[in-house]
Amino acid sequence: MKQLLEHLAKALVDDPERVEVRQVESEKSIILELRVAPDDMGKVIGKQGRIAKAIRTVINAAAVKESKRVVVEIVQ
């Protein structure tokens, strides 16, 4: 899950080396915290969150096989 998010984010940003994903797992859910360079924030969010929404849809599709809820958080 973490690798999938890194793979998507790295292809969207100008500075792939600064893409970082931290996975926080609890009993019921997995939280994926995505960090990118400040200048790349817009590239992973998109106009009106269009790109972030698409990323979440793809991650959720991959999460169907997991029994946990997967949440993507884009953090500063």
Partner: peptide
């Protein structure tokens, strides 16, 4: 929904 969102991402990428 997934196919159309993934298609959108592939276009951007």
């Amino acid at each position: 929904r997934t196919i159309s969102e993934l298609q959108y991402l592939l276009n951007v990428i």
